[in-house]
Amino acid sequence: MLYLFCPICRRDCDETELSCGGQAHLIRRDHTSSDKDFYRYLYERKNDKGIIFERWRHVYGCGKWFHTARCTITNQVFGSYSAKDALPPKSLLAKIRSSRVDFKGWIK
């Protein structure tokens, strides 16, 4: 039962208030893209065993979307940030790196 920090409400929220939107920072491909790129955008997922960046919505709360960095093995959460951020904040990446030596950094 996850307990995630909503950066808009500035408080921890129970999983029952949240809904997950999957991998964060996907780049939408429109009709000008190739079928292959469109496939990658729509279906292909990193699905890392380790640290992932994902989208959540505080659906039974403020209704806002936000991003988190979480480890899919231990469920350790490293932080939440705005859904508008195109990439994970540098400070967050630094925090992850400091606790996980094997973290390869943000890879698209």
Binding site: S19, G21, R28, R55, R57, V59, G63, K64, W65, A83
Partner: peptide, 13 residues
Amino acid sequence: YAWFEEWLQTEWH
């Protein structure tokens, strides 16, 4: 409604 919000907040913000 959730669909609208998702696109507005995460893609066309």
